[in-house]
């Protein structure tokens, strides 16, 4: 039987693929890489494209689309961390700017600053109310 390597493809929102493979082709940033079992450790970014997996019990290769991410190769294991969002320096920056702008907007809209003691008192009140309700319920039954 041919040698195999364990392949995991995961994204933050779902686990995409997990299984054994004889041979895997990954669209790395510097060009496609083909990986056989006992490959030397490798860490690289991948671009959007399809990952081809040749599993030992199937004649055809599995094709899995990934939208970029990171590839880690260990001698007995391949891990592909697929991105769910479209990434890029500019896009990430724009997102950060937007989040920051929102925060600034929120800062402008705030009324007056509260001190810690007041905030704590408010929270304690909420907790006490909840506790009281629970106690009331218990006494009734």
């Amino acid at each position: 039987m041919a040698m195999t390597i364990h392949v995991d493809i995961v994204s933050a929102e779902a686990s995409i693929y997990s299984g054994l493979a004889e041979f895997v082709v990954v669209p790395a940033e510097m060009g496609e890489v083909g990986i056989y079992p006992r490959h030397t450790p490798l860490l690289t970014r991948i671009k959007a494209g399809s990952v081809r997996i040749k599993s030992p019990d199937k004649a055809e290769e599995d094709l899995i689309y990934v939208s970029g991410g990171i590839l880690e190769v260990q001698p007995g294991m391949i891990t592909i961390l697929s991105d769910t969002a479209i990434r890029g320096q500019d896009i990430d920056e724009a997102r950060a700017t937007e989040a920051k702008a929102n925060a600034e907007e929120a800062m402008r809209n705030r009324t007056s600053a509260m001190d810690y003691a007041q905030a704590e008192a408010e929270l304690a009140e909420a907790v006490a109310q909840l506790a009281a309700i629970q106690k009331l319920r218990k006494n009734k039954h």
């Binding site: 950060a96 929102n102 925060a103 800062m107 705030r110 009324t111 600053a113 509260m114 905030a119």
Partner: peptide, 14 residues
């Protein structure tokens, strides 16, 4: 809550 507390909000998402 953080707004009322007067903390420095660096970023937010709601």
């Amino acid at each position: 809550f953080m707004q009322r507390l007067g903390s420095n909000i660096a970023s937010q998402v709601i």
